[in-house]
Simulated assay, not measured.
Amino acid sequence: MPTHTERPPHRLALGTPADWVELLRLPALFTVPGDALAGAAAAGRAPGARTLFAIGSSLCLYQAGMALNDWADRAEDAVDRPHRPLPSGRIAPGGALAAAGALTALGLALAARAGRPALRVAVPLAATVWAYDLGLKRSWAGPPAMAAARSLDLVLGAAASGGRVRNAVPSAAALGAHTLAVTAVSRRETQGGATAVPLAALAATCCVAYTLVPAAIALRLPADRGGAAPLGLPGPTPAQPVPSGSLLRAALALAYGVTAARPLAHAVLNPSPPLTQRAVVGGIRALIPLQAALSARAGAPVTALLTSALAALASRFARKVSVT
Rank of each mutant, 00 (worst) to 15 (best):
A293T: 03
D73F: 03
T16C: 04
P289R: 00
L97H: 09
M66I: 11
A98G: 04
T307Y: 00
S315E: 12
Q240Y: 09
L106Y: 09
D133K: 06
G101R: 09
A279S: 07
A200E: 10
G65E: 01
L252S: 00
R187N: 03
V302Q: 10
A122Q: 06
A216G: 06
R113T: 13
A41H: 01
A168H: 12
P230Y: 02
G162Y: 07
P9N: 02
G193E: 01
E76P: 13
A158R: 01
A49N: 05
A141F: 06
L180K: 05
A13I: 11
S246C: 07
A159Y: 01
S315Y: 06
T190K: 15
L306G: 14
A159W: 00
A13Q: 07
L219G: 13
D73R: 03
P230G: 04
V129M: 05
L313V: 13
P2H: 01
P170H: 10
L313G: 12
G101F: 03
V213M: 14
L119P: 03
T128H: 04
A28Q: 06
A109H: 09
G94V: 13
C60M: 07
A78E: 13
A218Q: 12
A158N: 02
S151W: 12
D35C: 12
A203N: 13
L275K: 11
G44Y: 00
R50G: 07
A28I: 00
L12N: 09
A42V: 02
H266E: 15
T183D: 07
T324M: 08
A141P: 06
S322M: 08
T179C: 05
K137E: 01
G299T: 00
G48N: 00
A75D: 15
R262F: 11
L248V: 05
Q291A: 07
L110W: 10
L202E: 14
A209W: 03
G94I: 10
Y210L: 09
V213D: 11
P301A: 04
G107T: 05
D80E: 15
E22Q: 15
A201N: 08
T104K: 13
T31W: 07
S58K: 14
H4R: 13
R84A: 00
I284C: 14
S171H: 14
S315H: 13
V321I: 15
P289Q: 02
G283Q: 10
T211W: 13
A203V: 14
L199G: 00
P271Q: 08
W130T: 05
V197G: 01
V169F: 15
C207A: 13
A260L: 03
D153P: 13
A147R: 11
V121F: 12
G142K: 04
A122N: 03
P214E: 03
W20V: 04
